[in-house]
Simulated assay, not measured.
Amino acid sequence: MGIGAGAVDAGSPPARLLDSEAVLQEGVAALTRCDPVMARIVAAGAVPPLRKRPPGYEGLAGIIVAQQLSTASAGAIWNRLKCLLPVLTPESLAGAAEPDLKAAGLSAPKIRTLRAVAEAVAAGSLPLDGLHALPADEAHRLMVAVRGIGPWTADVYLLFCLGHPDAFPAGDLALQEAARLADGLDARPSAPALTARAELWRPWRGVAAKVLWAYYRVAKARDAAPVSS
């Protein structure tokens, strides 16, 4: 793996939330200073968009609903769910009838997860409104303690809904493939290997993920481009 010059400002305060383009670019600049691989792929066009989703219960529910579905299927189910529950809160979901949720297109496992999240929020064991103030690892631990929330779901929520600058979904296949391409590896790194690689990027691992996703798009576009004669 390509290893950079050193971790990003290890003794500095935690990075700020990714709530503006300025903060995102601050993170990108920090990564390019500490890791030559990051500097190279950013120079090659891996410029990430800010991209945020709504936070709170509704934002997390949207991620859960969309898991392992096509964009079209997820959108259709989400629209039916929002027609059933225009105000989607832990309370409204908990009070919804099982047959109605299934009629909206939700599978039994996803209904269980949405209910488990609603119960955890109501009990105070999952403080969705306060996760942004916690270190990424602690926020991640609280989320995956809820039945049905896996590591990928937790990190995607922390990164895209809360703008947590250090969330890193190492199990994401596109992220692993981008890391393989960036580091010139023969095979995609495993989630543990990519997690270890990402230690260099603290406290901007979330920005590193965005850069790698951007590089994945650049690489795919390059591979799809017609060869000139």
Rank of each mutant, 00 (worst) to 15 (best):
K52P: 09
I77E: 00
L60C: 07
A196M: 01
G150N: 05
A122R: 14
L81N: 04
W204E: 00
G95F: 04
A66C: 07
A136V: 07
A225Q: 13
S70W: 02
P55T: 03
S12W: 05
Y216A: 12
G6K: 09
R147S: 05
D19R: 15
G4M: 06
P36S: 06
A167N: 06
T71R: 13
G130H: 14
P49F: 00
E58S: 13
G56M: 03
L131I: 09
P48E: 13
G95E: 10
R217D: 15
D129E: 14
G206L: 07
C34F: 05
H140D: 11
V207I: 09
L134Q: 10
H140E: 13
A174M: 04
T71F: 02
F160H: 04
W201P: 09
L85K: 06
C83M: 15
T71Y: 02
A136N: 04
D186F: 10
L142E: 12
L85G: 01
S229D: 15
A224C: 09
D9A: 13
A44W: 07
S125D: 15
D183F: 08
L50T: 05
V23I: 14
P86A: 04
P48Q: 11
E91A: 12
S12G: 12
G130A: 12
L181S: 08
E91T: 02
V207N: 03
A7I: 02
V207F: 11
P151A: 08
G105C: 03
L106R: 07
S228F: 08
S12T: 02
V156H: 08
A29S: 15
R112I: 12
G45H: 04
E91P: 00
R180K: 14
L142C: 11
V47R: 15
W78S: 11
V28S: 06
A174I: 02
A76P: 00
D100M: 08
H132P: 05
A15Q: 03
R16F: 11
R197V: 13
R180F: 05
W152N: 03
V218I: 06
V47T: 15
I77P: 01
V87P: 06
L88K: 01
D137L: 03
A74F: 00
L106D: 01
A145C: 08
V211K: 13
A96W: 04
H164Y: 12
E21F: 06
L88I: 08
V211I: 15
A120M: 05
L88W: 10
R188N: 11
Y57E: 10
K220I: 11
P109M: 02
P90D: 14
P189F: 01
A196P: 01
F160Q: 05
P151T: 04
L175S: 03
S92R: 10
A219V: 07
D172A: 08
L50C: 10
R222I: 10
A104L: 13
W152V: 02
A221G: 07
A74H: 00
A7C: 07
W204A: 06
Y57Q: 05
A196L: 00
N79E: 09
L185N: 09
A97M: 13
A182Y: 13
D155G: 12
L212G: 10
M38V: 04
G62P: 05
A133S: 08
C83H: 15
V47Y: 08
D100F: 07
M143A: 07
